[in-house]
């Protein structure tokens, strides 16, 4: 195992495929929310895009949002299995970490809720930026800090109580400042990040875990414990969750936060700082004048 590999991507894919087969898109409410957000964010961009690539957004929701926006001529969806390629868009099967896209070939890249499961996120962002034509736009969302923070806390508490130790059960998520740095490192100009946080309420921990299973996002960390969990463990975790994170009506809260990223491929028409030494007024003169006042 490469020490940089955090996620077992083969297992991630297996779980998503099983979820699709058993639950269809019944638990896609977070994706639907992100897709609505995508449409709104795109509507604020004053230009049209010829070729758009939707990168691993799980379902057809992102492509539909692009179509509704009326700003895109052609949409190509990339997924890591053909079974995810439903809908009217042209499809490519590829690993999002190893993109088969020609440099400077697309005008818009979007990605909903999958970049947080990449092992080489900086490399993936770099490949996206390279695939964009000058003045092309990347707009994406991934799960970020505070996502499932309550679940993480309760599983750690229950596990340490019962087995006297803990193992990773909830994936690590990036914080919004780190992601801004990643965009910059990948060479995007005018990078912007922000965070949208949602609270979803459930009857109990089991209902939350049912939804996570239906999304196919169970623990896929390489460092996960292979020991089977007991009923006692889950009962205790559910108890702790209810004690610490329930509303007066007894329902529990689960936090999901999406980090939104946008960045452009460089183009000469974009605003940029002046070259050092190109100033026409001297700072010393300005300060002298300021002192006089």
């Amino acid at each position: 195992m490469d020490r940089h590999q955090v996620f077992d991507r083969t297992l991630v894919l297996q779980r998503r495929l099983r979820a699709l087969k058993q639950h269809g898109t019944s638990a896609d409410f977070l994706l639907a929310r992100a897709a609505d957000d995508l449409e709104e964010r795109l509507s604020a961009v004053e230009r049209r895009f010829d070729v758009a690539v939707d990168l691993a957004s799980h379902t057809d929701l992102a492509a539909e949002a692009l179509r509704r926006s009326g700003k895109v001529s052609a949409i190509i969806r990339i997924e890591d299995d053909a079974r995810f390629l439903t809908g009217a868009s042209t499809g490519i099967v590829a690993d999002q970490e190893v993109l088969p896209l020609q440099a400077a070939s697309i005008d818009l890249a979007v990605s909903l809720l999958s970049l947080h499961l990449t092992n080489d996120t900086p490399g993936t962002l770099l490949q996206i930026r390279r695939a964009l034509k000058p003045d092309g736009l990347f707009l994406g969302a991934m799960a970020g800090e505070n996502t499932l923070t309550e679940l993480r806390e309760c599983l750690i508490a229950a596990e340490s109580e019962i087995s006297g130790g803990v193992s990773p059960r909830v994936a690590p998520f990036a914080d919004v400042r780190d992601v801004g740095g990643l965009l910059q490192r990948a060479g995007f100009t005018l990078p912007v990040t922000d965070i949208e946080t949602y609270t979803v309420r459930y009857d109990n921990l089991f209902a939350l875990m049912r939804d996570l299973r239906a999304m196919g996002v169970q623990n896929s960390l390489f460092g996960r414990s292979r020991k089977p969990l007991t009923r006692q463990f889950f009962m205790r975790a559910a108890e702790i969750y209810a004690e610490r994170f329930s509303d007066p009506d007894g329902r529990i809260r689960a936090t999901f936060s999406f980090i939104w990223m946008s960045g452009w491929a460089a183009h000469e028409s974009q605003q940029k700082p002046l070259k050092p030494g190109s100033a026409k007024a001297s700072l010393a003169d300005f300060l002298k004048d300021a002192e006089k006042d």
Binding site: V51, T90, A94, V98, L101, Q102
Partner: peptide, 15 residues
Amino acid sequence: LDRKLLELLVCPLTK
């Protein structure tokens, strides 16, 4: 294959 698609595809390993 869609012509447009062909134009933008490269080998993922060698680009």
